[in-house]
Amino acid sequence: MSTIKLLLAEDDELLASLLNFRLKKGGFDVAICTDGKKIKEYLKDNTPDIIVSDIMMPYFSGLEITDYVRNTLKLDIPIIILSSAGNEENILNAFKLGANDFLSKPVSPAELILRLKKELTNKVI
């Protein structure tokens, strides 16, 4: 079985490193981008199988990235949004722009892996 390419967009290096470790352990091939610009550059050359993105990031927010993936790149990749500001407005906006799931911080790595697997299964179906 080939590894699943995952783009982790998170500006907090500590959390990114922790999730990276756990996700790699869960069988994902993780690429980390710490700001919006890097994400866009990465997406020009690569197409990940799934994206996990924080909302608050330098240059471009997670919501803008979602919009970019859905409307500019026209990609149907599952996107999971992470945010510490889990207010209703953010959640609704994320779903409106085409995000597949939303997770509020503090995040449980085990739960994140389960949700990722669920999204990938839905995509295959």
């Binding site: 907090d12 959390l15 922790l18 911080k105 503090p106 995040v107 449980s108 790595p109 085990a110």
Partner: peptide, 15 residues
């Protein structure tokens, strides 16, 4: 400091 920072970001069993 690392553990205190992570405490804010993680939940569940990891915490």
């Amino acid at each position: 400091e690392i553990l205190l920072d992570l405490k804010i970001d993680v939940s569940g069993e990891t915490r």
